[in-house]
Every structure is written in structure tokens, then in C-alpha cells.
Design a protein around this nucleic acid. Structure first.
Lengths: 211, 211
DNA sequence: TAGATTGTTAATCGATTAACAATC
DNA sequence: TAGATTGTTAATCGATTAACAATC
């Protein structure tokens, strides 16, 4: 299933969808040309056209792309047929922020369980999500059919949490810990390293100041 | 100043530094071979050697790289000569999480001011940072010499905040809003799009499940 | 010395860009 | 029709990988 699709293509499609939804909601427009969407997404018009080829959606030379149909086509491509369930591990400030952010936002991509190694948190409900103890993971994952997890634990615990997640059947990780997780090739890891990103922004800010 | 250095190279150097610091602190080792560092960082040994060439640090065939000296060399390359100041705009859950995360962590990359359009927040102190009203930006930026900013406002406000930041002299942005900010070429934008990243992790998790 | 590493260059790979006929 | 778009292919670009002599 789409094994040859690149990382970046998926990211762009996800972004297109969000931009198109905004366009439909705010401006109530029905059609969009490739260069318009490209401008909004920060890519070239040719890039947009190539991505449309990937998902097999055709525009028309006169009108461009029908926004509603295009959103639907991206959905067919990106989304699971039903609801896809996600777990979050590590209820610190960041974990809580992410929970609040996603609560009820995307109906077919749902955070259904959170885990923390603080025994006081187990059993409580945080932003509408039940918090479980770490050792309940295999059971909960099996019951709720979780295959994707968000890792917001401290760096020192990240690898062992990842190992547990992989053992429990997770195949996709969104990792916020500043650690390169060692996982089998059968598991996909998407890294969000805030520290590194801030250092990059700071570095290039200085470059731009100097030139 | 280093205008030809790529985005990815800077990211890897930042990661190397963090991994090396951990190595020095936890294992108390003095030397590391390229393949060892490469494994930890999730890149090839040749990649590490090439990056070392970029910063002009030489290893020795017998011992590898002297960790302490290497950290210092990366610092010379990545860091500002003194303290570099950063501002954060948008004190929601995510903004607060980031503030807490960075508080006192990096002595030479400091969040010195936060901004919010809620008038009740102006004047308060959040995680050790003074909160200002939006209109105080030019003044505060000038006084504190801020050239880098973190954007954690809702998508609808992101572009106008970015415009204000650019006008106030910011040259590097770390953007958490799911919007492609339109900025002059003289400004560097690093995007952290959590929604897109989660959708990518979910998509590839399903790919891996299927294969 | 012998051997595993290093610095450095050439070959490969993949993604992006440019070009152009086909379309409405 | 005329013209600005589209789908699609060939050329370019840059980053990664592979190879190998130099080093301690």
C-alpha cells in the first residue's frame, strides 16, 4: 500500500488539505489553480501538479481544481477507511498541550489513550482522554487497535518507551524527545526536535543579520 | 557568514552536540569514532566525517574525535558570540510548554520576552518570562536585541504576527502554526507543523501494517 | 608493521525545475 | 479561436553513498 510514496509528498498533501479547507470555509470558493495553491503552500505550481498526479486527481485547464472534490481525493489517499486511533505517552506540559490541541479536532484521527509512569495520573481523565499506567499498554493497544503513538517523555526515557511501544504493536511514532530512536525498519518515526529547530532558526537569523 | 551552509547540516550539528554532551556526562568518555556518533544520530559515518570537515574539526585515525573539543568547535560554529535572545508570541498551552521546556536550559539561547494579545496577560511573569502586549514589540525587541521568535498563535493570526515580527526586525522564526508564512527572503522560517507530522506518522503506520 | 580509522573525491541517487504538447 | 492552464517528460541540481589513499 503506497510504499513508494515519499515522506515529503505526504506532508505536502496534508498541508494542501488544510489550506483547501480554509479556502472553502473562509472564502467559499469552488475552484483553485495550481499556482494559487502552490503559493499558499510555499511550493511551485509544478510541484502541486505532480502531487495531484500521485493521488490521481485531475484539474481542468479552464477552471483548475475543484476544491471540494480535491479535499475528498486527498482524504481517500491519506486517511484510514475508518477512525485511526492514536496514543500519547508522557503527560508533561507538552503532552497536555498536544492533547488539548487535538481534542475533537480531527474526527478520523483520534487520541484515545494517554500513558504516564506517574501512578497518581493513572485512572484520571486529561482533556477527555483516559490516562493509563505504562504496563497497561499492550492490553489497551490491542483493545483500541492503536498503531500510532506520540512520544512526549524526557529524553532519558524515550528509547525504552519506544521499545515498549514497538513491542505493543505500534508502527508509527511522532517523537518529541531529542533522541534518535532505534526502531526496526517496520516502524516509521517522525521527529519533532524543538531544541534543534530553535537552534536552526537562531543560527540562520544571525546569518541573515550579517548579510 | 556561512550563507552556504545547508539547513540539514545545521540540524545535524545541533543534534551531534546534544548527543556528545550526553556521552560526556553519562559515560564520561573522552573520544568517539565517527560510526559511533553516526549510529546515535541516525546518519552514516561518512555523513559525520563530512560535517566535521564543514566545521573544520579533525579527528585522529587512532582515537577518533575528542568529545570535549568537538563540542566546543560545534559551539564556535553554531552559537552567537554572546547570548542570543529569543521571543515567544502566543501564550497558549503550547507556548507555555515551550517556555517551561527552555527555561534556564540553554545559557546562550534565551527566551527573554513573551507576547500575547490578551491584555490580562500583559505585565505578568510566565515561567520566568515577562509578558508584554503586542504593541510593545518594536520597543522590547530593540531593547533586548531580539532577532529570533517562536510563533505559537492560532493559524488565523500567524501571518499578521509574522508580519509584525518581521517589521520589528526578526530574522528567524520558529513557526508552530499550520500556515505557510509569507516572509521576505531575508527571513528564515523553520516550520513545526504538529498536525501534518501526526498525519504522516499515522499514514506510514498504516503502510507498515499493510506490508 | 598491521589495521581500523580518517580526510577527500568520484559516482549514484532522488527530488526539483524547466520545457512543451494537450486541453478546455 | 486564443490563451492560460493542465498532464507529462527530459534536464538539472544537490545531497547522499561508495571508494580509496593517507594517517596514527
Amino acid at each position: 500500500m503506497n510504499a513508494q510514496i515519499s515522506d515529503k509528498t505526504v506532508g505536502r498533501l496534508s498541508l494542501y488539505r488544510r489550506l483547501l479547507s480554509n479556502l472553502l470555509r473562509e472564502k467559499e470558493e469552488e475552484f483553485v489553480f495550481s499556482h494559487r495553491l502552490a503559493r499558499a503552500a510555499g511550493v511551485t505550481a509544478a510541484q502541486v501538479r505532480r502531487d495531484m498526479m500521485v493521488i490521481g486527481y485531475n484539474g481542468s485547464p479552464k477552471k483548475g481544481y475543484a476544491i471540494g472534490d480535491l479535499i475528498e481525493s486527498i482524504g481517500y489517499f491519506l486517511d484510514a477507511p475508518g477512525v485511526q486511533t492514536v496514543a500519547l505517552v508522557g503527560v508533561g506540559n507538552l503532552g497536555r498541550a498536544i492533547l488539548t490541541y487535538f481534542a475533537g479536532r480531527r474526527p478520523n484521527l483520534k487520541i484515545v489513550a494517554v500513558f504516564d509512569n506517574d501512578p497518581n495520573k493513572a485512572g484520571t481523565v486529561i482533556s477527555g482522554c483516559r490516562c493509563y499506567a505504562m504496563q497497561d499498554m499492550p492490553e489497551v493497544f490491542k483493545e483500541k487497535k492503536v498503531n500510532t503513538a506520540i512520544v512526549t517523555v524526557p529524553a532519558s526515557q524515550a528509547q525504552s518507551v519506544a521499545d515498549t511501544l514497538v513491542a505493543a504493536g505500534v508502527r508509527g511514532l511522532l517523537n518529541f524527545a531529542p533522541v534518535n530512536l532505534r526502531v526496526p525498519v517496520s516502524v516509521y518515526v517522525e521527529d519533532m526536535d524543538i531544541t534543534t529547530s530553535l537552534e536552526k532558526a537562531a543560527f540562520f537569523a544571525r546569518c541573515r543579520m550579517a548579510s
